[in-house]
Nucleic acid binder design. Structure first.
Lengths: 336, 336
DNA sequence: CTGAAAGCGCTTACAG
DNA sequence: CTGAAAGCGCTTACAG
């Protein structure tokens, strides 16, 4: 089967491909093309089942209607959901999304940026890895539309969509305190990430304000040795003296592993130890008790990031927006 | 900043862009281009940070190195994981993946096929929706490389990667019987999907062989009314007389909802009722008892599908392959 | 060993 | 109202 191009249609009808292009793109307003010819062209296109070659169009007009979405770890359910929503919103606006994965690795981030650039993406939505400031700077210097999500570098003058990490973490910790916990642990990542450190800072601030901040209760685990480090941290916490009676987990992946580790140690959650998690998890609904968690407005994050990027692409706006969305502390959601 | 093209490099060096193209693509073997010139070109390209325009290349050579991946429901963790792996394998082989979502809807499947076709994908990996035979047929008639995954239509002569749905479902049911269950329920989809019906058939066959097949124990739920229909099915099952003492859930989404529903009804799983689920779930590791589940070789499915498609794209092979992979019944995986 | 030319399938001034 | 021409950035015969 031969590919059907504009020219095929033009030839069959004995008109120029320019005219066909005009009609098929709806640019034949105010009498540019006669009604009859226009109708014939439309019919012929339908008959031949013409599908335009987007590549050629993109090349010509210098715009691909494609967004590069760079995710730190696509296997993480939080990022997966985020990607899904971004994809949906982008599609509604006529954009294709190409997803790249960095595995939290700076080199891979550079590779994936180049890869997507060669694919002529019109802009990027990125969850940046540690130490990627220079890479991001290069993009903005080249006037490439860019929005950071979930994470940011406060020193960079770049669009971002974040949640209120500090405040919500303060609140989550405060909630443990109000439940009566007197010796609260925090498990966070040993990372140079602003958003994670804001979460840690919020928790510590709450502990300090209530006079129960003990530095040794703040544990930091490595991203690449997550389950071992968490096991170790939990181990120390439950053998602590006085015993830990509450734990705040600062991320999705830490929460899951933390809960697994507690259960493995036969800790009865919400009785022996109160916990609060970051991000929702299916598993929470299956447990016989309610686990408080911080619910991020993922859909809203996706919507705002997509809108912001597309606006930037289409209007070439130069002002920088930093959006901070509220997240929610869900305390009693068991019967959902 | 001006875009750097082949021509930029050629002009700066006073050579033709053809030569630059040859060198940059490593096609300057056996003395096509002199060592010195070749070196100069490479250096200049690096200096200018040249990024080739893949769109232009694709247009010229008539191949985009892009795969269209059409998923029925990207928010389902099974498909999400599958997409992740396919993406990874494809990338290793130099292909980009563009994902489309059908929401199990035939019309959306047609739209997404057209959308991806206009993007000039070289081929498709598809989890087809119900009644999409004609759509698939059209693709194969047009010689468009195609691989079905997870699902297939046995009457169609098309590549596919499946698991042994019938056999593993038989085995899963048999296992419940051997545990002593005498009155086993099956919850499956009311769908015209071969793979799901094979699962149901396997379960029924086992029940028949052991003389405990009771038609009223086989429940079918609607995809679009999943949680209500499951609630209703579970409700009937636990109020059955004699009581149901075992349930086999035939898909991932049914399993999760089924477990939630049982817990909501204060059923003590694995004591009041034995269950077996399709697909692994994080939640299972958090429960204080072990839930047997069927573990699909997702990574292997992804690898085989990607390999098969790329082979077809590059060799234009015409033989049809139907791969059936073994899945595993995991019975005692609690201490993982 | 290197260059000039054609062409992939489009769109967009421009001319008439 | 419609067409001819140029050009987006590449690659690939072909010529020398």
């Amino acid at each position: 089967m031969k590919k059907i191009s504009l020219k095929t249609i033009a030839n069959e009808l004995g008109v120029s491909s320019a005219t066909v292009s005009l009609v098929l793109n709806g640019k034949d307003k105010n009498g540019r093309v006669s009604k009859e010819l226009s109708k014939k062209i439309l019919e012929k296109a339908a008959e031949l089942n013409y599908i335009p070659n987007t590549l050629a169009k993109s090349l010509k007009v210098g715009k691909s209607n494609t967004i590069g979405l760079i995710i730190a770890d696509i296997s993480n359910i939080f990022f997966g959901t985020l990607a899904l929503y971004i994809q949906n919103f982008a599609q509604q606006k006529g954009y294709t999304v190409i997803i790249g994965n960095t595995n939290e690795n700076l080199n891979e981030m550079e590779l994936v940026i180049n890869f997507l650039s060669s694919r002529q993406v019109d802009g990027f939505i990125i969850t940046p890895t540690e130490k990627s400031q220079d890479l991001l700077n290069k993009l903005t210097l080249n006037n490439i539309p860019l929005v950071l999500v979930d994470r940011t570098f406060p020193e960079l003058n770049v669009n971002s969509v974040m949640i209120n990490n500090y405040e919500i973490s303060y609140k989550a910790t405060e909630q443990l305190i109000k439940k009566g916990c007197k010796n609260i642990g925090v498990i966070s990542y040993k990372q140079d990430h602003y958003h994670v450190n804001e979460r840690k800072r919020g928790a510590i601030e709450a502990l300090k304000n209530f006079g129960i901040f003990y530095p040794e209760n703040i544990k930091e685990v490595r991203y690449n040795h997550l389950s071992e480090d968490i096991s170790e941290a939990i181990d120390k916490m439950i053998n602590n003296n006085p015993k830990i009676d509450g734990i705040f987990f600062t991320t999705n992946s830490i929460s899951i592993n933390g809960v697994k580790s507690l259960i493995k140690n036969n800790i009865v959650i919400q009785k022996d130890i109160q916990i609060t998690c970051f991000d929702e998890n299916d598993a929470f609904y299956i447990l016989p008790y309610s686990i408080p968690f911080i619910k991020q407005p993922i859909k809203e994050i996706a919507r705002r990031a997509t809108d912001m990027l597309i606006e930037q692409i289409e209007d070439k706006k130069n002002e920088v927006n930093r959006i901070v969305l509220d997240s929610e502390l869900v305390v009693n959601d068991l019967n959902n």
